[in-house]
Amino acid sequence: MVNIQKLRFFDCNCSVGRVAYPHLSDIPDVEGLLKEMGRAGIEEAMVYHTVARYGHPPAGNALLTEAIKNNPRLHPVWVLLPHHTGEMPHPGRLLPEMEKHHVGAARLYPGANYHNFSLSEWCSGELLGALEEAHIPLIVDMDTVSWEDVYKILDNHKQLPVITATCTYRNNRYIYPLLEKYDNLFVELSRFMGAGTIEDMVERFGSHHLLFGTNMPQYTGTAAVSLLTYSAIDRTAKQAIAGENLGNLLKEAWK
């Protein structure tokens, strides 16, 4: 019998809800997500609703609130829009609403195929500034924003934690120079799969910039788990990446 000390996993990149173009499986509900989490051995997750991403954010955020209520393992992430069109309140009213619903992080989908707005200051500056002031982590999906966008946010809002989700294994020539300059960048690992990359980044930058994520239920969580558990870094670093780093970010929120 081998004595196993299991890491405690806190996933920063999950969703609930149906998508129009699934990879394979139809797993639209909370029960399906929890089953996937159970198979992979993942304790908690930050969750957004697919309707908030692929449809309309206010509607999706409301669906999320209903879907994950009474689930202490799932924590809400809202997808936001700048307030100018009136679809979402001004940040001065939006953030209290988010706090009331215990929203731990925000997502933005500015791309032309998504919500079609600019991340530049003239459009999103007030919203980004409000998130920064409240220490609410911003999650951006690297399928939908450019590294130039990420650079501008990091540079304009140095106290705003920016989590780049679904980074691919091909992104490290962007990430390294940003990590050299900005302490508020955090990298989600579900697709960050270059051989030796985790070890190299921990050696160069420390473990606190890396966050465990899976993109469940579109992806299985099992791959992301073994990516981390078999990494050649010490247990302290593994536990930090598995969940402590995310937990520390969330502790700072709403202070």
Partner: peptide
């Protein structure tokens, strides 16, 4: 795909598959 991709994730995918 090692080393183009890290081989470690594939162990979990197969090892924990139903």
């Amino acid at each position: 795909d090692n080393p183009f991709l890290n081989p470690r994730p594939q162990i979990g995918r197969i090892g924990l598959a139903d």
